[in-house]
Amino acid sequence: MNTLNLHPLKKVEIILEGAHRDFATDLLDRAGVKGYSIVGNLSGKGSHGIYESHLMFNEDDVLIMIIVAVPEELVSPILEGFTPFFEKHQGVMFVSDIQVSRLVKFKNCAPNGRWPVTPPS
């Protein structure tokens, strides 16, 4: 039996209003993440008060959470990228340490944007 090799990565969880989902996923794509998961219909309490998850007419007014696992070098670009957004909108970002077994699923090759992959400075 082979022992499982675990590799350390960082997990970023972003909670924001569903209306901005496309923006957030687009930004993550451009950052070069290979994939993400979206959890919908959240409710909770924040500095703006209690938030009910009520699926309305459209899905714009519910909270969602985007979970994405990234190598360490992408964490600070992602945080920098979302800073202007969170200055004007409600939501939070959490960064935690995780370990994954299949590294190839998470570590990136060239992203499908138009940018060449630049070494972060």
Binding site: F23, A31, I78, E80, G81, T83, F85, K88, S121
Partner: peptide, 21 residues
């Protein structure tokens, strides 16, 4: 100035926020 990935993402984010009104 060497633009980092973070800077580029930040500009994009600013444009998004600016476009909302």
């Amino acid at each position: 100035r060497n633009l980092t990935l973070g800077d580029r993402l930040k500009v994009r984010s600013m444009i998004y926020v600016a476009s909302e009104p």
